[in-house]
Design a protein around this nucleic acid. Structure first.
Lengths: 221, 221
DNA sequence: TCACTAATGTACGAACCAGTACGTTAGCTA
DNA sequence: TAGCTAACGTACTGGTTCGTACATTAGTGA
């Protein structure tokens, strides 16, 4: 997520639009994730870049558009990760587990992304709705799930009545909750869901859960 | 969640500390849930009560403490609902499904609560940490889960290696995500997770998932 | 090399907003 | 019924914060 941040060497190009833009996005991502949309301060973002507040308005137009740009980039990162998915050579059961684990890993590695999505939900997904880029952007993961599901259902291995979107929701809910709700959950139940010592346990739990659900014996009705 | 709101009849008691306090809490719950902690406006809360901003500071001390009071009451509601849980007469499988469904129903019926918890997580659960009441307040659901789990494991029906807290996390994650992320999920994947027409489908999906996980055949290792 | 434009910095304004100083009244109690 | 206090209202303030007007400079193309 973080771009280059070299200590402005002498002789280096002083003016670099792309770098300035990227640096603003980096800092804005942190600040929005830290404090929420309304809690984030444009002045604070500016102070933590090598440029000034003026540039934020020059490049992005305003706080709202800046947040949208932050979201667009964050979703872009996960979409790229999903495009790396290569599970077609695996059998359906192994493929689903692999997919679930990759989702698990990505959520764990990008807590800022989780926070941004939580914040965007507080605001009714209005920025996603207003963004053409995010509207166009499909989900490679969904295509992968669709393929695995079809294979598993045709072979009779998978008995569950779900489609790809539902399965994606199931996997995401577990991964998302573990990161997004770790603070309240920890405070109320005294268990740190992201404790590294428990990481493998939850990772396995997710895979077991999804596979058990998909392959469970079902009464014909 | 909403308290009495009768249209101040003449002859009725004008001064009613309990009512004023409750009315402030009602409106504050809506306003915080609507806009987040920093997005919520104390003036807006005051304007939508029959009293003034001065009273908010008189009864609660400040915005921060008001939010804490809102959280305390919201958590109190779910704790009360959990205390109504009576599944000890059911077999473990039926009991787990019943518990999951009650969690599902409560989350669906209290979207404001979900939003408040999401907001509290954005702020690192600092208000919960600062609240004695919320610290003391255990979870009746957890006790119920513990009993069901023990019964199911002793009878050999449940094969999964989970404790009550993990199982609670699993159930909550599905119920919570469905409500909390419905906006971004809907915008990105075009599916409304809280569409009434799909309600039974997701309710069954949750129960199936949890039971499949708990009862799945496992290789001894 | 000169002029033009993209990129940047400074300083400020106007609105907003949490919190408070100060004054008032309802209703209980002695 | 007198007086006392909990409950309430008004009007304001001080600081914050988004956004912008205006000035300036780096780099580039003719």
């Amino acid at each position: 997520m973080t771009s280059v941040e070299e200590p402005a060497r002498p002789g280096e190009r002083i003016r670099d639009a792309a770098r300035t833009r990227a640096e603003i996005l980096d800092v804005a991502t942190q600040e929005f994730a830290r404090a929420g949309y309304d809690g984030a301060r444009v002045d604070e973002i500016a102070a933590r870049t090598r440029t000034t507040k003026r540039m934020i308005y020059y490049y992005f137009g305003g706080k709202e558009q800046l947040f949208t740009a932050v979201l667009e980039r964050a979703y872009g990162v996960i979409r790229e990760a999903e495009q790396q998915l290569d599970v077609d050579h695996l059998d359906p059961v192994a493929a689903v587990r692999r997919l679930a684990e990759l989702t698990f890993d990505h959520h764990e590695r990008h807590p800022d992304f989780i926070r941004l999505v939580g914040i965007e939900n507080i605001h009714g997904a209005q920025h996603i709705a207003a963004s053409e880029e995010l509207g166009r952007m499909g989900s490679p993961a969904l295509d992968v799930i669709r393929r695995i599901l079809t294979a598993g259902q045709e072979s009779g291995l998978f008995t569950a009545d779900v489609d790809a979107v539902d399965l994606h929701a199931m996997i995401s809910s577990f991964c998302f909750f573990r990161v997004s709700n770790r603070h309240t959950f920890g405070a109320l139940f005294g268990r740190d869901l992201v404790d590294p010592d428990r990481r493998e346990h939850y990772r396995a739990m997710l895979g077991d859960m999804v596979i058990a659900y998909l392959t469970a014996e079902r009464s014909a009705d």
